[in-house]
């Protein structure tokens, strides 16, 4: 179990840095189509911001509750990714062929762009939740069992 940090400097910096890191993670995630970045890096940055919150404020702080809630979402990212593939199959194409996403009013290239965005969100969720989950697994056996069972 991780205790909250004693130093006021660390806590103040954490309060300031965590939202900045999260905004940067979202920027990297959605800017991945236009520059370096993408789902994997964005997910790691988002997960790291929440890991920083847990390391700074401890497992029991109100900021860490969101991390515990996120752990219930293990697998949602995979579901989004494979679900987009399934939607393409419903639309009449191959698995993960975004050109067959059945959205009216969009040309083929825009559909593929939308498919890239959706799957990137899936990857980012999966990576972020996995990173948080590994840190919790390594640090807090009894806490995590209590929060998952109770």
């Amino acid at each position: 179990m991780i205790q909250p940090h004693d130093s006021i400097i660390v806590k103040s910096l954490g309060r300031f840095l965590i939202p900045v890191i999260q905004i940067f993670g979202l920027y990297v995630l959605f800017f991945g189509q236009y520059g370096p970045g993408g789902g994997f890096v964005g997910g790691v940055i988002l997960g790291t911001s929440i890991i920083l919150a847990v390391l700074t404020f401890g497992h029991n702080a109100s900021r860490s509750q969101i991390a515990k809630k996120l752990l219930h979402g293990d697998g949602v990212g995979m579901l989004i990714y494979a679900g987009v593939g399934g939607l393409c199959m419903i639309g009449g194409g191959e698995f993960l062929n975004y050109a067959h996403l059945e959205i009216p009013g969009l040309e083929v290239a825009s559909r593929r762009s939308l498919g890239i965005v959706l799957t990137q969100i899936g990857v980012a969720l999966d990576v972020a939740v996995t990173a948080i989950s590994i840190v919790f697994s390594l640090s807090a056996e009894e806490i995590i069992e209590d929060s998952l069972n109770g």
């Binding site: 236009y34 494979a82 593939g85 290239a109 799957t119």
Partner: peptide, 24 residues
């Protein structure tokens, strides 16, 4: 094909999407 200027993202997420899914 996909209105994506970053070719790396386009290859990873569109042309080679199944590989990326298995990586996930």
């Amino acid at each position: 094909d996909s209105h994506t200027p970053n070719v790396v993202t386009s290859v990873l997420m569109d042309y080679r999407s199944l590989d990326t899914m298995v990586e996930t």
